[in-house]
Amino acid sequence: MIKFENVGLRYGVGPEVLSDIHFTLESGSFHFLSGPSGAGKTSLMRLLYLGIRPTRGQMAMFGQNISEMNRYEMAKIRQKIGVVFQDFRLLPHLSAFDNVALPLRIQGKKEKDICKNVEELLKWVGLGDHMRRLPHTLSGGQQQRIAIARAVVTKPRLLLADEPTGNLDDEIGYKLMILFEQLNKTGTTIVIATHNEQMMDKFRHAKLVLNHGELSVETPRIGKIKKILNEVF
């Protein structure tokens, strides 16, 4: 479903922040994206949500080569992707309800269906009483839940989340991971960028590990072996 071949990325005339990235994400897979700070996680996420174009290599999403897409096709591909940004990127003049409803309005859904879906989702993430509040009046955790609700409200084919549980307490964080797993079971491909080792241990999925701009893939079994080896030696 997503294929990167020898993808490289540099900003301006600076050094490459991602080099020869080569991987395939199958439809319905669940991956964590990890690596030390500055390894290029955010850049890789930006490439995945089509926020930037690679400076070299080939990127294909949902069977279409990115470099050959026109603006209309690009918009349609983006509608299949849900993104939870690290800094949430909520629109400050819109209520929690309207922020979550935004992707549905962009897709031209009927207002009646929007109301039903958004209310249901906001209640589910525990913000049923705060639907008409503006983001700046809500806590960081509440804002993060709005950002997550906005990313999943369209039932996207690909969900990208950058540190989605960073500001949440364990219980809410666990609940949201369950939501991601449920989405994954319905066929949504999930990529979660995180530093949270505990969470990666608890929900055992394949890892994309970035180090100095280079990517390696670890299955849960390899990850476990590595962990044992690290503990022994």
Partner: peptide, 16 residues
């Protein structure tokens, strides 16, 4: 600019 970019990332077409 940020809001416009965000709408684009959510799949908003130029006409929207």
């Amino acid at each position: 600019k940020d809001s416009v970019e965000l709408l684009h990332l959510m799949g908003a077409e130029d006409t929207y």
